[in-house]
Design a protein around this nucleic acid. Sequence first.
RNA 1: CGAGGUGUAGCGCAGUUGGCUAGCGCGCCUGCUUUGGGAGCAGGAUGUCGGGGGUUCAAGUCCCUUCACCUCGACCA
Length: 478
Amino acid sequence: MADKNKLVEAITSMDQDFTQWYTDVVLKAELIDYSAVKGCMILRPYGYAIWENIQHNLDRLFKETGHENVAMPMFIPESLLQKEKDHVEGFAPEVAWVTQGGNETLTERLCVRPTSETLFCDHYAHIVHSWRDLPKLYNQWVSVVRWEKTTRPFLRSTEFYWQEGHTVHATAEEAKEETERMLNVYADFYRDYLAIPVVKGQKTDKEKFAGAVSTYTVEAMMHDGKALQSATSHYFGDGFARAFGIQYADRNNQLQYVHQTSWGFSTRSIGAIIMVHGDDNGLVLPPRIAPLQVAIIPIAAHKPGVLEKASAIRDQLAKTFRVKLDQSDKMPGWKFAEYEMKGVPLRLEIGPRDLEHNQCVAVRRDTGEKTVLPLDQLEQSLQTLLDQIHDHLYERALQSRDSRTYQALSWPELVGLVAGKPGFVEAMWCGDPACEQKIKDETGASSRCLPFDQTPLTDTCVCCGKPADKRVVWGKAY
RNA sequence: CGAGGUGUAGCGCAGUUGGCUAGCGCGCCUGCUUUGGGAGCAGGAUGUCGGGGGUUCAAGUCCCUUCACCUCGACCA
């Protein structure tokens, strides 16, 4: 066991086989188990705890921006799903249907929600009558079902957990502001809680949400250079309002259609955490959402005073941190490796030598760095360390992304970059969907977004050579 | 959904041209000794050989079928 880089022999090395590494990590860290239902995953306590921490913090941010939680049914009558043409065309191929209730065949089949725009719209049509009723800023935390052909834990499963916000506004301007506000909430959350840098931008028409006027996205780069669409915020204009008849009387008693948004953030974000921060020893969790922030490992626990001191420290720290004292009879080395695999940000070692000096040893998961900490003011020391870990994870991810973000000024350059170097490639685009499709077909890279920074690189399309004013981030995506 | 691959104990695997009571390592349980990077000794338990059907005197092994997972494509949070 002298090889420090191979402590967890059960995990495949990232560079050897990234997808196998990913599967090993989600299983060995006990985030999920596979279930009896094809494509569905069981979120185990440790994995669900990550989601709970994400939920708590995001939910608070939603409420701070004026949103209320509701719960919609999980079934959508077919007639309701059919009301908005683009929407149904987009989702129909991946919808699960209920055709029977008990022993009775249903007169109208029910779709298991793949997303809930139609239910919210139907409800809004009932409750919105006057300008005084607006805006309505609703959100729900639920699971949805999409009959995916290829599934992977967290990244794409048949059923997945998410939140979906659905809002109605009096004016297009208000709805656009909401769309942008929530995109920023997502981007800030990725930075401040998950330590993941994202590119904010707009989706092309080809990539936008079915039924949306415009879709905004935050795109993150994984360790293997591939892109992950990490959350989206959609502006609907009044398209759904017209399809569902959501109207209100304005101040002049004129009937107006509402303007709408929706925005979603899913358990896919956990896949991003794994693939951005993880290493060959397993998970590396950002401290602010880690189910365990500090794992205390007693050394020579049978020696007088060790367990007592460790317990006292545990009780003291539990007031401030998510902390666990591992009193099992495993060897210390085994515990070190175990909590590393599970991505616990800090490990505290407390042994006989520490007792003598009123200290403990803190070890960072992200760097492996050991620090001897006096037990006085331990909370402050640990808080500082956790913040440093967060900042370091973010900086490391940012540098990793920026160092693999390239610019292509010509077609050969684009083809060469996408083929040779995993990562993002920025290039100019004329706006013709044919060029977008050709790039996808011939390089495998899809348009991730039109980043908000639209500073031109050149003035011609990287594909067709015609005048172009759109700067696009291209990349292979999950 | 197309191409390829893998399913044998909790995990990783072996199992010969079909042949007797299906093995190994790790893990697990008990006891003692250990404890600052995955401990040692002794004893012990654990299998619908992924499921279903077939061929055969005989199937983990051959055939059909089905399910799951992995890889690469096409489609999507």
